[in-house]
Every structure is written in C-alpha cells, then in structure tokens.
Nucleic acid binder design. Structure first.
Lengths: 216, 216
DNA sequence: AATCATATTGGTTGATCGTTCAACAAATAT
DNA sequence: ATATTTGTTGAACGATCAACCAATATGATT
C-alpha cells in the first residue's frame, strides 16, 4: 500500500501533495468566491489540511495567492495552448479555437466562472503588488502565444498589422466578453463578442488578400 | 448658520445627507478596494457616520452595495452621457468621446481605478444575485445609449450591421481594455484596445460607403 | 405643550478573520 | 541507534467582521 492512500498520518512524504492540494483548493475558491471573500479556513477545509501546514508552505494568504498565480503560469501551455495546437493547425483558427475553449469553460459552469486571471486582475491589482505582477506575466505569456500564431499567419493578415497589438486586442475581447457573460449568466454576450472579433479578422484577411492581388 | 454647517447633533434634517455620504463613501471604497475587502467600519469612518445610522438606512452591507449600484444607474446620464453629447455632436464620434472619458478617468487615477461596474461585475455576480441584476441593468442602460448613437449613424454603418450587438461589442472592448490597463498600471493597453475598435469602425464605415456607391 | 415619526448615538454581540506556536511524528542521514 | 530535517497538528491569539439595539435627540404635527 502506497503512503498516499488514505494515510492521514504526519508523513513528510505527502509534502508535495499537501502543497498542491492547497494550491488547487485556493485556485478553485478564489475563482468561485474571489480572493478577499475566501477565508483561509475555507481553503483549509477544501484541501483537508490544517492551518499549521499551510503556513509551513506559504508564509501568508497573500503568498498563497502568488502561488496560485504561479501555478496558472505553469498550466498555461500544458492545459490550454498544447490542446489548442493539437486540435487546430491553421494559425488563425487556433486563435478562435482558444476562444472556444474559454467558451466551453464558461458554458460548463453555467457562466458562473470566467477567466481566473481576469477576475483576480480587477480584484487585487490595486492592493497586492506582487500578485499584480504575476497577473501581468500571465497576460503577457498568453498574448505571446497568440502573437506567435498571428505571426505564423504571415501574409494572410495585412503587412501593416502589428501582431503583438492584435494579440492584446484578442485578450481584450475575450476578457470583456467573459465579463458580460458572467454578469448576465448567459453565453450570448461572449458569443457576440467573439463574433465581433471574427468580423474584424475577416476584414483584415480580406484586406490582406486585396493587398496581395495588387502587388502581384 | 445653516444646520448642515459643522453640526454634529442628531438632526433628522441631515437625513438625505447621511444616506448620500454613505453611498458616496461606499462607492469610493468598493471601487478602490473591492466589495469584500471593504469593511463596514471603513465606510463609516470615510462617511463620518456611526454604525447605527447606516443600519437605519441600509439593512445590511449587501443592501448598501445595491444602493451604490442604484446610484450608478442614476448617475449614468447626468455624469457621463450628457457631457459626452454636449461635447460631441457626431453620433459615431460620441462613442469614442465616451471611451475617451473612461480614458481620462483611468489616467487621472494612474490607472489604479477602472470601470466601477466592471469591477463589481466580476466580484459579486456569482454570489450576490440582487446586486448582479443591478450590474446587468447598468450594462444594459449603457449599451442602450451607445446603440442609440449607432442608430443615429444611419447609413454610415452597413445596413446589415446590428447596432445593439455593436454597442455590446463596444462595451466589451472598453471593459477588456480597462482591465489590462489596471493590471499593467499603464494606459497603453487601453489605448491599443480603443485603437483596435477604431480600426474596426473604420472598416465598417468604408463598407457602408462602398455599399452606398453600389446602390447609387 | 404634548405627541409622534425620523434620525443618531455608541457600546456590544458572537462569529470569523489571518496568523502563531509548542509539541509531535515520520523519513532521512549519520 | 541517534540526530536531523521535513512536515503535521490543533488549540489559541488579538483583531476585525457585520450586525444589533436601547437610549436619546430633533423637527414636524397637533
């Protein structure tokens, strides 16, 4: 019988597991209830961990938040980007497959939960500097991936089109759309936002085609 | 000497003033720190009011939040819409003047504070149903005004362009842009988002012109 | 002058907040 | 075997939380 199976003794071998359980519980509760509204005791109960253990791994609740945001940084590629790239080859389609993943998550929670980063961004940017920087890093990594796809799109977008700026615009539309979906508890505002972005992309692609025709 | 001047006696004549001071203080603190992170005692201190008075006008902290959101409903036209319409006559320009007003507010707070409704939308939509409905009403009123302007734009936008849907897209871009500006503490992400929207509008207007030319 | 509705006061409640710590247990190194 | 490192326990801390209420004051009505 392995140590991790129904063994509630004080076993240092479960160390990594305890830390992970705390991060997972905290991530879920911060997303569902928000950071300030989530008590440490709720995280402890959800994780099945006693308070002393938490303060062994994290020096404060704020530090736990930073840990959660670090975890999101680690999860971006394996959980989000790689599945998107596996599902879709076309670089522009990849952008909208990514947005469809967020849609799926919204729908699967009845639009109660949106983008974890976006939610925390608005709640803690003023007051928690270290966490704010992690939020920015999350946004930057996300945009870097999308910008890479847009670069891959090459001449299918106008030459004058700044791919980095466009990637940040994609983030803007995703976050704005999920905010409205969450507020209304309906997916339609998100879908409408993505449809608006799709229309914009269609026009950019049309211009790129016209550009190409002109230049031979 | 009027009653309201440095008179801290228990004077019912100051009733409206007390209620207003509470709403003003609460609105400011909820925006600066978030709803859950703001203690009732902080609101009381900011407003210069004792706890009993607050619970005379509001039956709970949640009720105070609803009051704040009702106040935003009342303030939308006099504080935001009417100044925009006074400053700008062209219906499409009005949209971007409105967005410039949000920009000014962002800049004037070093991008620490963004859209009050958007911030509350993400924090309380899951957990406070009544407040959530007020958030939705705020969004709907905002969009109704913008949609009106877009209708006023008439043939300058394509006939097929759904003005209601486009107004919600404008909201999406504003909220997504302010979120990134707040996270990064820089106005550039907001400006870039609005520039992206401006580009989209330019293309819509170009199509409308082409449409008009075709049809005579 | 008496009455009444309106508003304010401020101390107090029990619950929960984030955090600490001395004692202890298990694995590893010596 | 012993010592050391790594983790765990759970009670307890002071602070703050949202909320309550009996006493009191004011202005308007009669």
């Amino acid at each position: 019988m392995r140590r991790s199976d129904s063994d509630n003794s004080a076993a240092p071998a479960d160390a990594a597991s305890t830390r992970e359980k705390l991060l997972e519980a905290a991530a879920r509760l911060f997303l569902e209830r928000g950071y300030a509204a989530t008590g440490v005791s709720a995280v402890l109960a959800e994780a099945g961990v006693r308070s002393g253990s938490m303060y062994y791994f994290f020096k404060s609740k704020d530090d736990l938040l930073v840990g959660v945001l670090d975890r999101y940084l680690e999860l971006l590629r394996p959980v989000l980007i790689e599945p998107v790239e596996a599902a879709t080859a076309d670089p522009i389609d990849r952008v909208f497959t990514l947005l469809a993943f967020y849609r799926h998550f919204l729908v699967s929670t009845n639009c109660r939960l949106g983008c974890p980063i976006g939610n925390l961004a608005l709640e803690i940017s003023d007051t928690h500097e270290e966490a704010r920087q992690k939020v920015v890093q999350n946004f930057e990594n996300w945009c870097a991936v999308v910008a890479g796809w847009l670069v891959d799109a090459g001449e299918r977008l106008p030459a004058s089109c700044d791919r980095g700026a466009l990637s940040r615009y994609v983030l803007t539309v995703m976050e704005g759309g999920q905010m409205q979906a969450k507020a209304q508890k309906r997916i339609e505002p998100y879908d409408a936002s993505i449809a608006g972005l799709r229309d914009h992309f269609n026009r950019l692609e049309a211009e790129a085609r016209a550009e190409k025709e002109r230049n031979g």
